[in-house]
Design a protein around this nucleic acid. Sequence first.
DNA 1: GCAATAAACATACAGTGTATATGAGTCAAG
DNA 2: CTTGACTCATATACACTGTATGTTTATTGC
Lengths: 200, 200
Amino acid sequence: MADQNGLEALSMRKLAGALNATAMSIYNHVKGKEELHTLMLDHVINEFEHPDIDGEWKTMLKRRAISVYAALKRHKWALTLMLTKSAPTSATLRDTDRVVGCLRNAGFSFKQVDWAHNAIESHIYGYTIQELNFPVEPDEYQSAAQHFLPHISLKEFPHAHASAKAVADGDYHGMTDFEFGLDLLIESIAAWQAKNQQAE
Amino acid sequence: MADQNGLEALSMRKLAGALNATAMSIYNHVKGKEELHTLMLDHVINEFEHPDIDGEWKTMLKRRAISVYAALKRHKWALTLMLTKSAPTSATLRDTDRVVGCLRNAGFSFKQVDWAHNAIESHIYGYTIQELNFPVEPDEYQSAAQHFLPHISLKEFPHAHASAKAVADGDYHGMTDFEFGLDLLIESIAAWQAKNQQAE
DNA sequence: GCAATAAACATACAGTGTATATGAGTCAAG
DNA sequence: CTTGACTCATATACACTGTATGTTTATTGC
C-alpha cells in the first residue's frame, strides 16, 4: 500500500480494510503504528544484498550499495521512516555485520571500517534523498528545463539560468549518476586505507 | 516550535495558540500546512553560507557544506521536509546559483558542475540523515556500546559484536567525522576534473 | 462617514492513532 | 465434560489532526 500510494495512504483503518478486518485488530499483532513502521523498514533492509565477507571489498561494497539504492527507490517511504525511527533492529545488525566483516577481512582497522562504511552510506542515502525529492523523471529533463527556464531570473541567478539553459538546449542530458560519486569514494577510501595501514 | 519539540508537535492549532489566535487565522497568511512547511524549509536554506563565486572552489564548497550540515542539525525537521516537498523555491535557486557559479569560474563544465555538486550534496544529506537517526549522543558512545553489547549476538553477528566491543573497551571513540568523507570527495573531484578538463 | 478590504473568528466535517472493554473461538488441565 | 486461560476480532469512544465554509470584526483609502 505504501509503495503504491505513499506512506500517508497507509492508515490503520485502510490497512485493516485491505485485510477484511477492523483497525483495532491490528493491535493484536503489532504494538502500534511505530512498530508497524519498524517492521516495514526491516522488510526493506532485508532486500539489501549482503556482501560476501570473503569477497573483494571494493566490488562487494559497490554491489551492496547499488542494491540498497535500488531498494530505497522501490520503497520511496523507507528513507522517510529512517528519519523518524530510533533503535537499530536485527535486520540492520545483519547488514552492518556483513559490511564490517568484509572490510575487516580486507585489513581495515575498526576506525577505518567505521569511517569508510559511514562515508559510503552517506553517499547512498544522500544521493537517494535528492533523487526522490527531484520532481521530474529523467526522460523529461530537457522539456522540464525548457519549461522552467523562464522562471529562473537571468539577472538574479545567472549561473543557475545558464545551467538550466544548457539542459534545455540539449548540450548535455542533465542526468547525474549514482555510481560516479560511489566510485570516487571507494577509490579514495582504498588509497586512504592503504596509506594509513601501518599507522593504525 | 519544531526545533524544540519536533515537527509533529507543530499543529495548526498549537501554532495558532502560540500566536494568540485560532487555527483558521493562519490560513489568511498561508495557503495550507504544505506552504507553511515550504516557508520553514526556505528559512533553513537561507541559513546556508553562500559560497563566494570568485573564491577558491575547494574551500568555498567545503565551508558551505559545513554550514549546511550545521543548519540541518539545528533544525532536525528540515531533512524530513525535504523528502516530502516537491518544487524548488527561490531560496534553493539562490544557493545552487552560487555553487554553480563558483564551480563554473573554476573551469568546470556544466556536466562536471552537476556531478560534483550532486556528489557533495549527497554526502551532506546522507551523513546528516545517519547522525539524526543515531540514537545516542557522541559523549555516550562508550557507555552505550557497553550497554548494547550483550544484545548483539556474538554467534550471529560476530563482526558487529567485535566492532561494538572495540568501542565499549575504549579502543577507539567510535565517532565518525563529517569532514572525512567531504575531504575525500572534494579531493577526488578535483583530480577527476583536472584529468577530464580538456576532454570536455 | 462610507465602502472596500483584510484578517480573525466560530462551527463543522472527515479522518487519524489508539485506550478500553467486550465477546467469540481454541486448547489444556482437572 | 467442564473449567479456566489464552488468542484474537470487535465495538465504542476520545482526543486530535487539517481544513472547507460562512460570518464578524478591524483597518484602510476616499
